[in-house]
Amino acid sequence: MNSTIETILAHRSIRKFEEKPLTDEQIKTIVECAQAAATSSFIQAYSIIGIKDLAKKEKLAEIAGNQEYVANNGHFFIFCADLYRHALIGEELDRDVLPSIESTEKFMVALIDATLAAQNAVLAAESMGLGICYIGGIRNNLEEVKKLLGTPERVIPLFGIAIGYPAQDPGKKPRLPIEHVYHEDGYEQDKDLYLGQLEEYDKLISAYYEERTSEKRSDTWSGQMAGMLEKKSRMYMKDFVQNNKLNLK
């Protein structure tokens, strides 16, 4: 096992950081590593917005559900799906690019490109001894995020990443068994096998929570997922995306 694999396998979400900002050199390195990620057909359909302004970070923390680590960290990054520059290219070169830009396929490309770049950024940060936490809560109110960041049409803020010096050492949360995630030569559709694997995983997660909380919590993963998915959330997303001239076709 090499140091890269050790860094990947040691990942955990950090939600408390030291009051120490990242240096401009650290920020530059993280962004350069993000840019080194694979990108579909070299389209590079994403942008990254770094937030230093404390008032903006505090507003983003409020939008994200009053998560204080959105405001209190070494640096806050927001990853955006971005096809704005591609629309400008079409205008400048007088080419009919909008049908493609407004397609579901190119929207998916932008989502994938941004996510690949983000994970590269995370691995770079963690390899530097920093901690990270992905923040999907900015999607609670993207209209407010859009106003705060001044993003143009065809740009969708997807998620944030809080990065900084860890001020906690949380336990590593067990993932689904590899047999439940990795399928060979086709998707395993033995329902009894599938449910049996979930049952074993639920026992593992329940034990994890009991140990972590001195038996004050014993949730199962299945119970968490059922409870979360039963509640409708961010149902405005399709309209927001289409109002920003993406995923129209």
Rank of each mutant, 00 (worst) to 15 (best):
T104W: 14
S41D: 05
D190A: 04
K20I: 14
E18N: 12
C33F: 12
V109D: 00
A121V: 02
V155I: 04
K172P: 06
H180N: 11
E184S: 13
I161R: 03
S3E: 14
R139F: 06
F42H: 14
V145L: 00
D96Q: 14
A114H: 10
E105H: 14
R85T: 03
L116A: 04
P177I: 04
V97H: 06
K216G: 06
E200Y: 11
H180S: 14
A118F: 07
K203S: 05
G227S: 09
H11A: 03
P157K: 09
D96R: 13
N72G: 07
I43W: 14
I49H: 07
I48F: 01
K249F: 15
A64P: 06
Y84I: 01
K245C: 04
P99C: 02
Y182G: 10
S47C: 02
I14E: 07
I178A: 11
D96H: 15
L229T: 11
P152W: 09
A121L: 01
Y187S: 06
F107D: 01
L130P: 00
G129I: 09
L193K: 14
S218E: 09
G164C: 05
G50P: 04
N247C: 12
N2Y: 12
S233E: 09
C133G: 09
G227A: 09
L229C: 11
I156Q: 05
E200G: 15
D219W: 14
I78R: 10
P166V: 12
F17E: 07
E58R: 15
K238W: 09
A36V: 00
E68V: 13
R12A: 02
H183G: 03
L54I: 14
L88P: 00
E58M: 13
R139E: 02
G90C: 02
D113Y: 14
N140S: 04
V31D: 00
G160C: 01
G65E: 00
K106I: 12
A117C: 04
N243W: 11
A110C: 02
T104N: 13
M1K: 09
E211S: 15
A45R: 05
I89T: 15
E184D: 04
A117P: 01
Y46P: 02
P170G: 08
I49T: 05
H11T: 03
A71L: 11
D94K: 10
K56P: 01
G186H: 12
G90R: 07
E105P: 07
W221H: 12
V181G: 07
E105A: 13
A37R: 00
G65T: 02
K20D: 10
F107L: 02
A162G: 03
L111Y: 07
R212T: 13
L98W: 09
A55T: 10
Y236H: 05
F17T: 04
S13R: 08
L176K: 15
G50S: 10
R154N: 01
T7S: 06
I132D: 01
P166K: 15
N73A: 11
G160Q: 04
A34E: 05
G129W: 10
E105V: 11
E105G: 11
T104M: 13
L130F: 06
L111C: 02
D113W: 12
Q168D: 08
V155N: 00
E210F: 08
W221Y: 15
I63A: 01
K56R: 04
K216N: 08
S218T: 14
E6R: 12
V155G: 02
G129M: 05
I205T: 12
D185G: 12
M225F: 10
A64N: 07
W221S: 07
T115H: 07
K147Y: 01
